[in-house]
Write a protein that binds this DNA or RNA. Structure first.
Lengths: 157, 157
DNA sequence: TATTGTTATACTCTATAACTATA
DNA sequence: TATAGTTATAGAGTATAACAATA
């Protein structure tokens, strides 16, 4: 009975720990984002859609938006309806394809996203101020590494 | 112009990086949990409620369950209704207080949770097998540290 | 024929307000 | 009077299936 058995035990123990931490992290980070967005009357799917438009100056098709948030396009219709009702986004025709749309942020939409960003930045800086520079780097590196493997398994699922 | 300015720039840059990573992590870990649960026809709120009962042998009151998932009790009624319809949980009377309930897992509920745990464990081990023991420890430590500060800011929000 | 997007429908989660039964 | 839980109601997100317009 050797190192291999001990190694396996350690692996199982780490797995249990990772699972517990991940469940809490999943909850708390979702909760944290929702708190940030509540103040602006935005839901998470709405924010995700707006961020997608922010990164594409020429706008996004409904299919683009659906794919970016891993949803079917029928779901996206309702989300964009509600954002459009509030004047945060607009459905423009696609000059290249008369079936498609170019959904874009309105000036009000851009303005709102900037306010959200400022709020989030303030809270992030508050968190980070409790950590040393080294701790921050360690956190960033291991989070990135963790994401890599996580995203790999989600994609292949 | 000295170290302080450079430090501040580094802090801002780290903040931007943390925010981007956190958003992806929030999404991917939620997605990952949902994939695991889909196979068993469970939603995330249902699973959270069942886990709460699993950790309390004598059962949970509706208020306990609501508080644990940060929801109002009226929301919990619907979630427990659906679990009870499937025979996974049961509403028992509380002998101490005739207003209250002791919601418990049925044998079928326990059985299902064990199947879910096995599935999750298998995937977790697959992820961890791609990392060295040192990498795993680093990940666990920094995730725990990250959670600490995150949970602190969520609680105080 | 295939694709883009919407409509119709149904289910789950979420919250608020009104209510019943008990403490 | 206060608390535990449900019901009624409304709105948001999610998916599937059927559909219109266009490619």
């Amino acid at each position: 009975m050797g190192e291999k058995v001990l190694e396996q035990q350690q692996l199982e123990q780490d797995a249990a720990e990772i699972e517990a931490l991940n469940m809490r992290l999943s909850w708390v980070s979702r909760r944290r984002m929702q708190i940030d967005l509540d103040a602006y009357g935005l839901t998470l799917p709405q924010y995700m859609a707006m961020r997608c438009m922010q990164e594409n100056e020429q706008g996004c098709s409904m299919s683009d938006l659906a794919e970016a948030s891993h949803q079917v396009s029928a779901t996206m219709t309702g989300i964009i309806d509600r954002l459009a009702d509030r004047g945060l986004v607009a459905r423009n025709p696609d000059p290249r394809d008369r079936r498609a749309l170019r959904v874009v942020l309105t000036p009000a939409g851009h303005e709102l996203l900037q306010q959200v960003a400022a709020t989030k930045r303030e809270l992030t800086l508050k968190i980070l101020s409790e950590l040393s520079g080294e701790e921050r780097r360690a956190m960033i590196d291991s989070t990135r590494r963790y994401l890599e493997v996580m995203e790999h398994t989600v994609r292949s699922a």
